[in-house]
């Protein structure tokens, strides 16, 4: 084995990943807060009002990053589910199941903020058009994955079954993304493009991109937190988990550390 595969194996081992995740997590949350505050300042204070939508457009700074995260989260979950099903890597199973609640949260935010934006701009809270319906299907897929995962007793079997459902549902991801091009819809098309010029002014673009970075970091923060707990669960009987459980025993409910040290 070369160094890269060796490193990969080590990273994939639950105790190592548990430790690295514990170190990364506060950085994810901290940087998410910093970029989030900067992005919100740019979006709510610095950016000018839209010439058509006035100040209502400012919902974009949370709606669009959340929508991106809903899709990214699903992609991340499905990719990990694929690895878990093909190579039976325990860490991938846990990562896939850890990303479902985070992705579902962002999809829920997208739907609610979209509704709150639609009411003043379109005159309706909801319409059954392609973009909105496929986004709702995305939320239901997330909820289906979470529900199936919790319906099966054995953690690893549950992760594989739910991972399979996640893989089947991946067909919905391009439908959500391209729905505004494929069908006539009330929803506007994309204004930010990875390739080619974006049709949005820089003063509105940079807060949007900062918010996108912040939501990505927040997503990984909560995914790492859930992954740590998930790893403790699947490796429940292992030595490394036992050590962590016993060390945690020295917490508030256990005898004080000073009492122990002189025993």
């Amino acid at each position: 084995m070369n160094i890269l595969t060796l490193w990969f194996h080590k990273l994939g081992s639950p105790p190592t990943f548990y430790r690295i995740a514990g170190w990364l997590m506060p950085w994810c949350y901290g940087l998410a807060l910093v970029t989030g505050v900067a992005g919100l300042y740019g979006g709510l204070v610095q950016a000018p009002a839209d010439y058509q939508q006035g100040d209502a457009y400012r919902i974009i700074f949370i709606h669009v990053p959340s929508a991106w995260m809903g899709l990214f989260g699903y992609f991340f979950m499905a990719a990990n589910a694929f690895v878990a099903l093909v190579w039976r890597i325990k860490l991938s199973e846990v990562l896939a199941m850890a990303s479902a609640p985070a992705g579902a949260s962002f999809t829920f935010i997208t739907l609610v903020t979209g509704s709150l934006w639609g009411k003043p701009m379109w005159g309706t809270w909801w319409t059954w058009d392609a973009r909105l319906t496929s986004e709702l299907v995305l939320l239901f897929l997330y909820l289906g994955v979470i529900g199936l995962y919790h319906a099966i007793e054995d953690r690893r079997q549950a992760a594989r079954a739910a991972g399979f459902l996640a893989l089947v549902g991946v067909v919905n991801v391009p439908i959500v993304h391209f729905s505004v091009n494929w069908w006539n819809t009330l929803h506007q098309g994309s204004t930010v493009r990875l390739f080619g010029p974006s049709s949005i002014v820089p003063s509105m673009l940079w807060p949007l991109l900062l918010m996108a970075i912040a939501t990505h970091l927040w997503f990984f923060g909560t995914v790492l937190a859930r992954t740590r707990t998930g790893l403790l669960e699947v490796d429940g009987g292992k030595d490394w988990v036992r050590r962590i459980v016993l060390a945690d025993d020295a917490g508030p409910s256990a005898p004080a550390a000073s009492e122990r040290s002189h025993v």
Partner: peptide
Amino acid sequence: MGGYGGYVWGSYAVFFIVLAIDA
């Protein structure tokens, strides 16, 4: 927010509450 305060701040409230629960 130019008369859209309820919609804008409502959205931001949902965003923060859901993400706080998520964390």
